[in-house]
Write a protein that binds this DNA or RNA. Structure first.
Lengths: 227, 227
DNA sequence: CTCCTATTTCAACAGGTGTTGAATAATGGG
DNA sequence: CCCATTATTCAACACCTGTTGAAATAGGAG
């Protein structure tokens, strides 16, 4: 004889769980575990619902993952697209600084998203790359245009491959954002709260000299994001 | 009534499986799947034995993984230590290229190892497992010495912080090794088998110009690892 | 030949995984 | 008030995981 001590009520709870809440939970778990290791049960637990509910909103784990990405990317993409405007006559170094700032602005409050992007990029091409690639491609294209325009304006060495330079600049930015606050205070005499800005400037300082047609010219003054 | 069609013989096979063979198989599987995703059954299958046999030689999956690492790390450390010899009078750019080559030589076949190092570094300085920290610290110290010697010899800009430069150089190297073969063929017209070398050279080209006292001087010819 | 020990396998455990189909409850419209 | 739709849960499936205890075997020692 089966014993059901407290047959909890089925059906919708008083407070419904919106798809956005599921996305929040999914993002958090995906960020910590990665796509492969993250379990739907853990996501459901975090969202406070049954794993099956996920299948009501999303066709599969993979679709859920893609939905998490699709929620954040358009805003970053829009900013980056704006930056690539050919009419923008500011020095290329300054525009590249803006690239870093855009990354920082959109991802600083979202360590989950950073870990997610980083993890999935690193985790290898086979499984998930196609999903992520479709979102990332237009983004890197915009940055690449800034380099191409820099070459045309005689500010960037013509041997520089815009796409490759984009890859180096963006990848490093993505990788160091998380660790700067813990690493920089150890490496240099920098308080943790200033570590991100200091580290980003130091990185652009080296990178820009490596890419500029005239590296003897110092970086222009770089505005802080609060300006 | 259970039916045992062919009760295969138990006991040792004609050719015994040494612990080193298990380590080989484990390394191969860990390399392809990573620590978490690799299954003992897959390792056993590769080694041609039963999963239980692993427990005869190693206490757990984690112990097996550590044994795989312990086999690799000392060699990297020794190479890097040799490179930091102050008597080494070669151009600093060439020595930095050697840093990249050492990383590449020792880690190219071992994404599991790379993933572990990367993960531990991201997790922050204090969270680093003591075993790994003790092995990484002298490694970064060696690279840092090369930068310091470069400054002393008037080849590297004196403003460059050796530890910070080490951080940028080594972190990027660690991060791009995995993705170059899949990313570079897309970004540039480079076949996958040449992607790693091409990408490493391009990265050092930019980085060295960013760090050098006289960036107008081009990189010296960089030997391939086969030389 | 006999026994012992090191090595190897088998079978099972307890738990986790993505996924599905049916059942159920709340909600809103007619 | 009823009824259809929507949101949610339950229970189960088939499979995979790390791990363990006992059984079995081969080879060498006596």
């Amino acid at each position: 004889m089966p014993f059901h001590p407290v047959p909890r009520p089925r059906g919708p709870k008083p407070s419904r769980i919106a798809a956005s809440q599921l996305l929040d939970a999914a993002q958090a778990v995906f960020a910590q575990e990665g796509l492969q290791a993250a379990s739907l049960r853990a996501i459901a637990r975090k969202a406070g619902c049954d794993p099956s509910l996920i299948y009501y909103h999303f066709a599969s784990k993979e679709v859920l993952f893609q939905a998490v990405l699709a929620r954040r990317f358009p805003a970053v993409l829009a900013d980056m697209h704006l930056l690539a405007d050919p009419a923008d006559a500011r020095p290329t170094a300054l525009r590249l600084w803006d690239v870093l700032l855009i990354y920082h602005r959109h991802l600083k409050d979202d360590p989950g998203m950073r870990a997610l992007i980083r993890g999935e990029i690193v985790r290898g091409a086979e499984g998930l790359s196609p999903l992520l690639a479709d979102q990332i491609r237009p983004l890197t294209a915009s940055i690449s245009q800034v380099f191409a325009q820099g070459i045309a304006r005689g500010e960037v060495r013509p041997e520089i491959q815009p796409m490759l330079a984009t890859f180096f600049l963006a990848k490093m930015q993505l990788e160091i954002l998380d660790v700067l606050p813990t690493v920089l205070p150890v490496l240099m005499d920098v308080p943790p709260e200033a570590a991100v800005m200091t580290g980003m400037r130091a990185w652009l300082d080296i990178f820009w000299r490596g890419v500029a047609l005239d590296p003897s010219q110092p970086l222009p003054p770089l505005p802080s994001p609060c300006d």
